[in-house]
């Protein structure tokens, strides 16, 4: 057996959105610099789109409002990028227990948070008295929002939580998530 660590299916966010934004900004800066440089080499003068703002920036002092704002913005953007890079972020799927052994040396079973929410909502929808249901998953917590026309909100909440917990445990979620429900009685 190889000693290399397998890449797990259960992963943390890959920070595609901030990385794409920063990459697009870097690309745009690079392209504009190349265009301005080539224009300067061909015509002998910097394009006015570069020379005008550069002139006004050069006229500013170190203590000017522009310098203070620019450095503060750089600091804030830096903190945002640092947090995006360092903060692990929540998992978007949960581990499932499943069959092991032949014919596979290693097994890795996961279920996405969206799938957990759909399983939970579908199971809650089967409970008698439930009119409408919505579900969301954050970490190991499943939250259900149930609407009913019944006056027995507490009883329905108990049945929904019990049935959804049983279903998710039976699905093999390891560890089983905590299920909570808020029940709203709809006025007739």
């Amino acid at each position: 057996m190889s000693s290399t660590r397998p890449r797990r299916l259960r992963r943390r966010p890959s920070r595609t959105v901030p990385a794409s934004i920063v990459a697009a900004v870097i690309t745009a800066l690079g392209v504009l610099t190349v265009i301005a440089g080539i224009s300067r080499l061909v015509t002998g003068t910097w394009p006015s789109q570069v020379s005008t703002p550069a002139g006004s920036v050069a006229g500013q002092t170190l203590g000017s409002t522009l310098a203070v704002v620019a450095t503060a913005v750089a600091l804030v953007v830096g903190v945002v990028l640092l947090v995006a890079g360092v903060k692990p972020g929540g998992f978007r799927s949960a581990q499932l227990s499943g069959p092991e052994g032949e014919p596979a040396e290693q097994t890795d079973y996961v279920i996405t948070n969206t799938a957990i929410a759909r399983l939970a909502a579908a199971e809650a929808d089967r409970v008698d008295g439930v009119d409408k249901v919505g579900a969301s998953v954050a970490g190991r917590h499943v939250r259900l929002r149930v609407t009913t026309t019944s006056e027995q909100a507490d009883e329905i909440r108990g049945r929904v939580v019990r049935q959804v917990t049983d279903t998710l445990s039976a699905a093999g979620l390891d560890p089983a998530p905590r299920v909570s429900a808020t029940v709203t009685t709809k006025d007739i």
Binding site: P6, L9, P103, Q106, D108, Y109, I111, A122
Partner: peptide, 15 residues
């Protein structure tokens, strides 16, 4: 041969 690894990601279709 034996599989080196079996990885399964489960999703649930819309009801």
């Amino acid at each position: 041969t034996r599989l080196r690894r079996l990885a399964v990601q489960v999703e649930v279709g819309r009801a």
